[in-house]
Amino acid sequence: MIITVTLNAAIDRTLAVPSFTLGRRHRAVEQTTMAGGKGVNVARALKLLGQPVIATGFAGGATGTRIIEHLTEQSILNDFVRIREESRTSTAVVDPTTGVQTEINERGPRVTEQELALFVDKLLYLAKGAELCVFAGSLPRGVADDFYARMIGELRTLGVECVLDSEGEPLRQGVRARPDLVTPNEPEAEELVGHEFVDPVDRLRALGEIAELGARQAVLTLPDGCIALLEGPGGERELWRATLEPLEPVSAVGSGDAFLAGYIAALYQGRPTPERLAFAVACGAESTQHFGAGTLDPRAVERLVPTVAVERITAAEPLAGIVGGA
């Protein structure tokens, strides 16, 4: 079983608005509303990929009820802690004429110490039957920045693999707890390591820096695929690159969540590294053809997989010290 944790779950509303301009009145030509938050999106994609998954987190008020109802309607197993304050609503505006998207995410509810304690008890109970747990997204108010780090420590002692997909201080502190995998995009990775990336070598070096901070493995997602520092069969570190010509997007909202779901699905199935990366990139790309985060067509994903170029990166001089022993 795979657990996805979404502490700041939401109702996500995505609108297609041609020629979107600030300060103007517009009419949407298409819209969709569904349960959201990064972990929820990952759970949706995993379900579509046929993997055993349960979504958990916080759900509050009428919005929280809608989140649970949406997941139940999609046959996604879920077990959320109900809280007093209202869960958030997030809105994404996609301009189909340019492909530009604008996201507005509400701050979300404040969680009490008692509600947080209930969630910890629930997560530790669910972890007894799980092999892998994904901690994804932002933290609601009232939850300390080190929460992911503490939970990663708890679950690793239970033998549960931990994946972290967050940003800012929760990501920084979470990495120190030695998660099995972190999957930042480029801006998140730059913030984590404390400097901007000027060229491709900077990105590769950043993977080594993330490993030095504590992550066992790291995947940096990019518009055309990803680069990754992963453990080889003998525990040695290997650098990989996977690329795919970007598709003309309908909406890129949640494509990173679909990428992560694809990687986890392939990992859960025991696929070798090149197949995991190709499948992940194909999932992320295919999801851009749909309206709604975490939505994809598994058959279309399989058709894309052979078109993903995956290569092992050898340790040239600028990369000395990144690859090799863990």
Rank of each mutant, 00 (worst) to 15 (best):
E161K: 15
V160T: 07
T157Y: 13
R141D: 15
D180V: 00
D146E: 12
F135V: 05
A149G: 10
L155R: 08
L132I: 11
V163W: 06
C162N: 11
E161W: 11
A136Q: 02
D165Q: 09
A144Y: 00
P179G: 14
D180G: 13
G153Q: 15
G174F: 08
R150V: 10
I152M: 08
P170E: 02
F147T: 06
V163K: 04
P179D: 12
L164M: 10
Q173W: 01
L155W: 04
G174N: 09
V175I: 14
F135A: 02
E154K: 15
V160H: 10
E161N: 11
F135C: 07
E161D: 13
C133E: 07
G159Q: 11
R156P: 00
L164P: 02
A136V: 00
V143P: 02
C162P: 01
G174K: 08
E161R: 15
M151L: 15
Y148V: 06
R150Q: 13
V160I: 12
G159Y: 12
I152V: 14
R150E: 13
E154Q: 15
F147M: 08
S138K: 04
D145S: 12
V134G: 06
C162L: 08
T157I: 11
V163Y: 09
I152C: 06
A149D: 01
G153R: 14
C162T: 14
S166L: 05
F135R: 01
V143G: 02
Q173N: 05
E167F: 13
R172M: 02
E169V: 06
E169G: 00
A149R: 02
C162R: 05
R176E: 10
Q173M: 10
A136N: 02
G137M: 09
V160F: 08
D165G: 10
R156N: 13
R176W: 00
D146Q: 05
T157P: 00
S138W: 02
D165C: 11
A177H: 04
P170G: 02
G159T: 12
A144L: 06
D146V: 02
G142C: 04
V143R: 03
L139Y: 04
A149C: 05
R172T: 01
P140C: 01
L164E: 07
S166C: 05
R172V: 01
G168F: 06
V163N: 08
C162F: 07
E161Y: 12
G137F: 04
V175L: 08
G159M: 11
V160M: 09
Y148R: 04
L132G: 06
R178E: 15
Y148W: 06
G153V: 09
R156G: 13
L132C: 12
L171A: 03
